[in-house]
Design a protein around this nucleic acid. Structure first.
Lengths: 157, 157
DNA sequence: AAAAAAAATATCGTGTGCGATGTAATCATG
DNA sequence: CATGATTACATCGCACACGATATTTTTTTT
């Protein structure tokens, strides 16, 4: 009886920590979409662009470290962006295993066209600046902590 | 020159609010995985189970409202869970359009087997209770606010 | 009551995510 | 310097997410 009552609370959605993040993340991606589809890019593609607007030339692995994504996600993503003429690929001469990616002129030009996106999104969020700062701070703390513990491709089991 | 400097900050990942949530959400899903694969379920399937452990019988739409998912995601998800014998489907007699879903005995039995999952996950997060509570509170506030403004299938443009 | 609109699912196509595995290049070690 | 381990990507298969659209049933309008 009492055990039944306690069991009932364990799996309540509002008690969960991941679910509201999972749902919120998808909701925000939906908010991004009308802004990004005018630029003919998806949200993950926008993330790749944001990285490359600040870092000229990166290997696939380095890009993956910035975005917490593995090559099995990035390779097809990069391929599509190359087909859209947003990105150039170039194999490293010093290490033939590595592939560098960098933006084309078209990819660079998108930065200007996307300059209104961050503010437009913040408006659509309808969240207080305080809450936004709090989320950002805690999530980055979590991510850095996570990055120390688990190194992508390996995983220490 | 100064315009160049300000432009540079706009699209920095650490300035973004959605990216750390998007990345954190995926990281947490990865933490769930070793716990859930022992039960032979995925994270979205776990979410469906959590709802149905507390609400006996729901239509696809009602389930979608709980999880912020549309039928184009839920229908195939439900189908797979039916094939795994976790869920039963039944068309409503009062409204032939609606389909009710409810757990099979096997689905109900999983609640017991999953009872350690929430605590195990919290441990693996390595976050303070205070941060967890803060995230949960702000994210739910955001979700409820969002739910008021945007009604899934329609969208008020 | 017939026609139009709305509602509840289902289907289709596209784009991620990611575990598992494959391949080629580089490194490490005896 | 051969060879086994490691590294950097690529490929494959599966499971979501979701916009667009189709289908069936109910509701609303006229």
């Amino acid at each position: 009886m009492k055990e039944e009552a306690s069991k009932k609370r364990i799996h309540l959605l509002p008690e969960q920590i991941c679910f509201p993040m999972y749902a919120s993340s998808r909701m925000i991606t939906r908010l991004y979409q009308p802004l990004l589809e005018k630029l003919d890019i998806t949200y993950p593609q926008y993330l790749v662009l944001m990285v490359l607007w600040h870092e000229e030339k990166l290997s696939i692995t380095e890009l993956g470290q910035r975005l917490f994504l593995n090559t099995n996600t990035l390779t097809p993503l990069i391929k599509k962006m190359k087909e859209k003429n947003l990105i150039k690929k170039q194999r490293s001469r010093s290490d033939e295993r590595s592939v560098f990616v960098q933006l084309t002129e078209k990819g660079k030009a998108l930065e200007e066209q996307a300059s209104h996106v961050p503010d437009a999104l913040l408006d659509s969020l309808k969240m207080s600046n305080e809450d936004i700062d709090t989320i950002r701070r805690i999530m980055w703390k979590f991510l850095s902590n996570f990055n120390e513990r688990v190194q992508f491709t390996e995983g220490e089991a």
